[in-house]
Structure formats: C-alpha cells, structure tokens
Amino acid sequence: MICKWCEQHGAFETLDKGYWELPDGSRAVEISDLPSIQCSDCGMCYQTDELVGDVEEQLMLIDTSKLPPSFSYKELMSQERLLKKNYFDINRYPL
C-alpha cells in the first residue's frame, strides 16, 4: 500500500485512536480501535477521507450527549441514529 503522506510503499492497515470535536463544539472525544493506515517508512498514522466522513456523519446523526469521553469506533457506529442520513451534506448527497 502507498502512503498518502510520503508516497512510499510500506503503508499497512491498523487500528489506532483518534480525537474528534463533537459537532456542537461542546467537547472532544477519544475514539479507539479506529481503522487507520500506518506507514512503516515515514511513521505517519492516518485515517482515510472516507472513514473521516463516516465518523463525522455518524456524530451528526446521533445523540452525542449520551457519549462517554472515550469509546471505540465500533461502539460509535452502532449508536442509534436520530436521522437516516445527513440531509444537509450536499457533497455526499447531491440534490
């Protein structure tokens, strides 16, 4: 796999943790076991744009007041949604 940061071969899939600010700006949370890409060449660990979009969409569609300060990616994605999709994201759901 090619690293998006250094463009060298040697990147691989792994699990890492990440930090997100909730959509209302009230606080930040830690998400563990986040599917990520790690580069053995430059050492960068990052998430794909698609995964970042999925996390941000999920945070927009659930009751974030019920979230603890730290939880896993799987726990986040299993939260019940208040809406089926984010109707305000015209980039993901064009009219």
Rank of each mutant, 00 (worst) to 15 (best):
residue 76 L to D: 12
residue 4 K to Q: 04
residue 91 N to T: 02
residue 20 W to I: 03
residue 34 L to S: 01
residue 70 S to V: 08
residue 57 E to V: 07
residue 48 T to N: 08
residue 74 K to C: 06
residue 84 K to W: 07
residue 59 L to Q: 11
residue 52 V to A: 12
residue 18 G to M: 00
residue 29 V to G: 11
residue 86 N to W: 09
residue 75 E to G: 07
residue 88 F to W: 11
residue 79 Q to K: 11
residue 80 E to I: 09
residue 68 P to F: 00
residue 74 K to T: 07
residue 12 F to Q: 12
residue 2 I to V: 06
residue 32 S to G: 05
residue 45 C to P: 01
residue 36 S to W: 11
residue 75 E to K: 07
residue 55 V to F: 12
residue 65 S to E: 13
residue 9 H to M: 08
residue 48 T to W: 03
residue 52 V to S: 10
residue 65 S to T: 13
residue 5 W to K: 05
residue 47 Q to A: 09
residue 69 P to K: 12
residue 87 Y to H: 03
residue 68 P to K: 07
residue 61 L to V: 00
residue 59 L to R: 09
residue 3 C to K: 04
residue 5 W to F: 15
residue 9 H to I: 11
residue 25 G to D: 09
residue 28 A to D: 04
residue 17 K to I: 02
residue 84 K to G: 11
residue 38 Q to A: 15
residue 4 K to I: 00
residue 84 K to S: 14
residue 49 D to T: 14
residue 95 L to W: 03
residue 81 R to K: 15
residue 37 I to D: 00
residue 48 T to L: 02
residue 33 D to G: 14
residue 15 L to A: 07
residue 23 P to M: 02
residue 53 G to F: 01
residue 12 F to C: 08
residue 56 E to G: 06
residue 2 I to W: 05
residue 8 Q to H: 03
residue 27 R to S: 10
residue 26 S to D: 05
residue 33 D to R: 10
residue 17 K to L: 04
residue 47 Q to T: 03
residue 7 E to S: 15
residue 45 C to Q: 12
residue 22 L to I: 06
residue 4 K to Y: 09
residue 27 R to N: 10
residue 27 R to G: 10
residue 9 H to P: 05
residue 43 G to Y: 10
residue 54 D to H: 03
residue 18 G to A: 09
residue 5 W to I: 14
residue 78 S to M: 03
